[in-house]
Amino acid sequence: MMKGWILQKQVYGKEPSYETLKLIETAKQAGIELELHDPRQIEIIVTQDDRKSVLLDDKITKLPDFIFPRMGATTSYFALAVIRHLERLGVYSVNSSEAIEKVKDKLFQMQILAEKFPVPKTIMVKFPVNADIVAKKLGFPVIIKTLSGSQGSGVILSHDAQSFEDLGNLIQITNPNAEIILQEFISSSKGRDLRVFVIGNRVVGCMERYATDDSFKANFSRGGGVRYFEVTPEIEKLALSVTSELGLEISGVDLLFGEDGYMICEVNSSPGFKGMEQATGKDVAQELVDYIKSKVN
């Protein structure tokens, strides 16, 4: 029987996500034993006796056929080390450690994509921040983002120079070493965007996400609505090209409605799919399991 591990940080007392539970059940129906493990359960030993260099809960364990990291932007250095080690032992990783590392850093991701694709203007800042420079280079309102974050966390809209300075002072006092980027606000896409789900070299589905209140965010995980959106040749080409450029196999590509066409907001290496299934009627978990099975075989 094929065996795999979902690698995902677990919070004590919190149930696994919809995606995790459905993947495990779908894999079981396909004859795959899929287990959920927190990377912190795993210890690695750098030794020539490679097949005994991985410990799970302090015990030498048989290696899985594949791993499916599901941490995205929250992937820690330790988790990356575990993924790298298993890759070196011949375990297939659904999205490589190299691709995950590229994508988890939002600034690095933008640096790569800006060479070939339309992206919002982005600045990395240090404190104190000169609001006049921000006004000149990006304008207000402006998006403030932490370098790592997912599901809309760590993303704030600052409406004007005064509120920006107030927030900057608060951040500087509470966390002077905070890693922050500023991003141009695309007003034509306020409260809505597109999420395109890519598996392999194929677009599985596309949905429009929209805010159900006056928020500038449209994240489904934070109460936003979703609806089916037709995959046009432009959307397909853009999503596949971006995914390939970042070296990803599985991706969630977020597109903004720019005045002159679509712009890349960001790319997720571990996209949720509950909203995608709801909007498109597709069984994304089955698509993922079928893809993994074909790659391992």
Rank of each mutant, 00 (worst) to 15 (best):
G154M: 10
V155T: 14
V155G: 03
S158K: 04
D160Y: 03
D160V: 00
A161Q: 15
S163T: 04
G168M: 14
N169I: 08
N175D: 12
N175V: 01
P176A: 09
N177T: 10
I180R: 11
L182N: 03
L182E: 05
I186N: 12
S188K: 13
S189W: 09
G191R: 03
V196L: 13
I199E: 00
G200S: 10
A211V: 15
A211M: 06
A211P: 05
T212N: 11
F216W: 03
F216G: 04
K217R: 13
K217G: 00
K217E: 02
N219S: 13
N219M: 06
R222F: 03
G225E: 12
R227T: 11
Y228L: 14
T232H: 07
P233F: 14
P233Q: 10
E234V: 05
E234T: 06
I235Q: 04
E236F: 00
A239F: 08
L240F: 12
S241M: 13
S241D: 15
V242P: 06
L246Q: 05
L248A: 12
L248F: 02
I250Y: 07
S251Y: 00
G252F: 06
D254V: 03
L255M: 15
G258A: 12
G258D: 15
G261I: 08
M263I: 04
M263K: 15
G272E: 07
G272D: 10
